[in-house]
């Protein structure tokens, strides 16, 4: 396709995670589109695209910064809406860290299913396609537009293979819900697997924990989809240590790290917390020497390229581009 033809990739970045957008753009060999995002004095968000998007294939990258979830979400919706009114051919929302992902069921009387609301809102704003990372399968079905749910797993597998002898490792799921994710990694690495059962009286509060499996003299690798206040991970790490693990580290897709997460981590027995850069980490890497970051942007960039060219994305489910 010649450069003059319309329907090129237009990469638009929200304000929540410009570093990730830059990395994706660099990988794709394009520039991030010029835009202006700002807040009025009454904090209403205003957004303008600085270049034509008519008939272009628009990809909007917006993560959600910890603490500013609604700000990021509203900005994303406004960005989608602006591109829609500016006659973009297709609008793909690239949301590495899907907001409200945990509020996906009516677990109490009259509890809102906010994840479904967000899905509906994105479609109402005009998104034609969603690209995200490690979203629960149940939430993918909230959408009536195509959703490409990418996995951090290939990146994790590579990280483990590059840094440890796989036969020394045991993959541990910190809760029953994550058992499938952990067994999948254990199968790929051909290692042992363990599980921690926990009682959770309230969200973000961790109860008693019981280890199922053997971690003695092994490197225990906890695997989860998000680390928020890190209470679960730290307690799980303590349980693993008590059960004779040589060292404990955690591999987590979304490092939300809200509240006192950094302090909790610093004072824990956890040797390292490895996260991807789906969530902007700000100064947390400096504040927490245990925090290590895997760059997910090659996977996202490749997904964007393949989506744009109409190629299959399934390759990315098992391979992490370098």
């Amino acid at each position: 396709m010649s450069a003059e033809m319309a329907n090129e990739i237009k990469l638009i970045s929200g304000r929540s995670h410009p570093e990730l957008s830059e990395k994706i753009a660099k990988r794709l060999g394009i520039e991030v589109a010029r835009t202006i995002s700002l807040n009025y004095s009454n904090q209403e968000t205003s957004f303008t695209v600085g270049e034509s998007v008519r008939d272009e294939d628009v990809f909007i990258v917006q993560s959600t910064a910890t603490g500013d979830v609604n700000e990021g979400l509203m900005e994303l919706l406004i960005m989608i809406s602006a591109c829609r009114t500016a006659s973009a051919r297709r609008i793909t929302a690239v949301i590495p860290n899907f907001p409200y992902a945990r509020q996906d069921k009516k677990d109490k009387s009259r509890a809102p299913i906010s994840a479904r609301l967000v899905a509906n809102m994105l479609q109402t704003a005009g998104a034609n396609h969603i690209v995200t990372v490690d979203l629960h399968a149940s939430q993918v079905s909230f959408f009536s537009v195509p959703v490409d749910n990418l996995y951090a797993e290939p990146s994790f597998l590579r990280y483990i293979r590059e840094n440890f002898k796989t036969e020394d490792c045991v993959i541990v799921s910190p809760d029953a819900g994550g058992a499938k994710r952990a067994t999948s990694i254990a199968d790929h690495l051909n290692t042992a697997f363990a599980l921690i059962h926990k009682e959770r009286p309230r969200p973000n509060v961790v109860g008693r924990m019981v280890l199922v499996g053997n971690v003695e003299d092994k490197i225990a690798i906890l695997v989860d989809d998000m680390a928020d206040t890190c209470g679960t991970l730290v307690k799980a790490a303590a349980v693993l240590k008590e059960n004779g693990a040589k060292s404990v580290l955690a591999l987590v897709t979304h490092g939300i790290l809200s509240g006192n997460a950094i302090e909790t981590l610093n004072s824990s027995v956890l040797e390292a917390l490895v996260v991807t850069n789906t969530v902007p980490l700000g100064d947390k890497v400096e504040r927490c020497p245990k925090l290590r970051v895997i760059d997910i942007s090659p996977t996202l960039a490749e997904a964007i390229r393949r989506t744009h060219n109409g190629e299959s994305v399934s390759y990315l489910f098992n391979h992490a581009p370098v």
């Binding site: 209403e44 968000t45 205003s46 957004f47 303008t48 695209v49 600085g50 034509s52 998007v53 919706l77 406004i78 960005m79 809406s81 602006a82 591109c83 009114t85 500016a86 609301l117 509906n120 809102m121 479609q123 109402t124 704003a125």
Partner: peptide, 21 residues
């Protein structure tokens, strides 16, 4: 309303969001 080229009509978006809610 669209005040600038490629600006968003956010009030309309909000109306649609409330409708979908």
């Amino acid at each position: 309303k669209k005040k600038s080229h490629r600006g968003a009509i956010t009030a309309r978006l909000l109306a649609n969001l409330m409708d979908v809610a």
